[in-house]
Design a protein around this nucleic acid. Structure first.
Lengths: 144, 144
DNA sequence: CTTGACCGTTAGGTAACCTAACTATTAGAC
DNA sequence: GTCTAATAGTTAGGTTACCTAACGGTCAAG
């Protein structure tokens, strides 16, 4: 497999990613939860996390994670729970309100996207399904 | 094909896109050209464009496109050329310096990505290649 | 019990978007 | 032909989500 081929692939890959991001952002611009807030909440939906882990998982710095959490906490969607084994650590977890808001936002947005999926052929749909794990792996390979 | 299945697909698709965004952004954080600047320049590399088309193609509003162009023009990477058929219109085109900067940035960044592609199996690589046109179509389906 | 590492917050700054309001030009109606 | 409505782009002002640097509190190891 030639390097030049991969270079071109990288170019188109980049380009469709950029487009896809704007698309997702415009779907998320419905005034409920921003894209960043949603992804933080989605992370917390799986399990409570300390600030530093939120940052690491989201690919952002700790102060940015603090900022996100503060915003969400002010809105009552998450709560800070001081760890009782290490008093430096703050665990962040979804509140009931947070889970409801997240579920509602996810449902509506994923519905919009699922509709678009239906405009694809079965073959095209399949190709996206197959690519997801590969892209996941690629993301990891490109992470620090 | 069930809706529920598509809903789940939408969720994972969203998630890997988010991750991919951070990855691309971190590759682009090399101080040369920002991700947004690069994508504007890439668009202009194909052909000169008026401001409103830059905005439309990039999925942003006209004032944001003006801002981007102003920034690039200040850096000497693009130039505004007033249309001589319609004096309201401004055509924006790459300067030589702009083309050089773009080529250099693209090469280095795509090289980084191409390296990561090589950590994938031939099968995984193929799945990404196949997915690109499908994602492109999906992007269009989700655009306003 | 002190020193160094670690966790999170605060302070201050920037890039990239947005909406609303403006200017200049064009095109269409009468 | 002129007046009006639409269009192209800019300006002004604001927000979000990131960043780095500097700080305070807590833990762990010598």
């Amino acid at each position: 497999m030639s390097n030049i081929e991969n270079l071109e692939l990288a170019g188109s890959y980049r380009e469709i990613l950029r487009q896809a991001l704007y698309v997702v952002r415009s779907i998320d611009a419905d005034g409920e939860l921003s894209t960043a807030q949603t992804s933080t909440l989605n992370m917390l939906a799986a399990a409570p996390q300390r600030i530093s882990l939120i940052a690491r998982n989201a690919g952002i710095r700790v102060p940015s994670a603090t900022e996100q959490v503060t915003k969400l906490a002010t809105a009552g969607l998450v709560e800070r729970v001081p760890s009782n084994t290490d008093f430096r650590v703050v665990e962040v977890r979804l509140t009931t309100k947070g889970r409801q808001a997240l579920d509602a936002a996810n449902l509506r947005r994923n519905k919009t996207m699922a509709q678009a999926f239906e405009s694809l052929s079965a073959h095209e749909l399949e190709s996206i399904k197959l690519a997801i794990p590969a892209i996941e792996k690629l993301n990891e390979a490109l992470s620090p």
